[in-house]
Design a protein around this nucleic acid. Structure first.
Lengths: 83, 83
DNA sequence: CAAATATATCGACTTTTCCCGATATATCAA
DNA sequence: TTGATATATCGGGAAAAGTCGATATATTTG
């Protein structure tokens, strides 16, 4: 999912019908591509959010998720320095 | 364990009695510090070895393990570029 | 070769993670 | 307000990972 969200335009064409990509991609799009149930995908996304890798924005009945690039940079640096 | 092996002289003083650190640290030293059973530590180390994070060298009845720094560098870069 | 020592492997049990269906909550549309 | 849609949360069963004791293998020493 994290890789998918790196190129949302390519991986989630259906998102165009939900107002574009500025806020991220909504759960239903990710679920359809993942082939897992709605509850599983929702839980995954909330875990990734708590871990700081993605950000959520609620707009109406939709929740949009997008990557937090800073977290990946930080993880990469942490592996370099601490591990 | 991976962090311990970054500074073997500091974390495994008992290793001095096993011929020093040039080949790495032997399993018994790591086991004592980890506080887990011998079998568990042996399995951990073999998993880390298969994953490429450490290298093993058998010398007599001892197996010495040491870090493979390249693997950490590669992981850090992989997170930067692919994730 | 036999006993001692260091490590590896195996089988079983426990704990954690994964994933689901059911249900709850929130928003939108009529 | 009611029904439809999107997402979140909950409880449980299945799968995977963690950990152990017992045992096997390899090496050294006497």
């Amino acid at each position: 999912m994290l890789e998918w969200l790196k190129e949302p335009e390519i991986n989630f064409p259906g998102q165009l019908e939900h107002g574009g990509f500025e806020h991220g991609v909504c759960v239903g799009q990710i679920q359809a591509k993942a082939g897992l149930t709605q509850s599983t995908v929702s839980e995954y996304l909330s875990i990734l959010q708590r871990a700081g890798f993605i950000e959520a924005k609620r707009v109406g009945q939709w929740t949009y998720y997008k990557r937090n690039e800073g977290a990946f940079e930080a993880l990469s640096k942490l592996i370099q320095s601490n591990l």
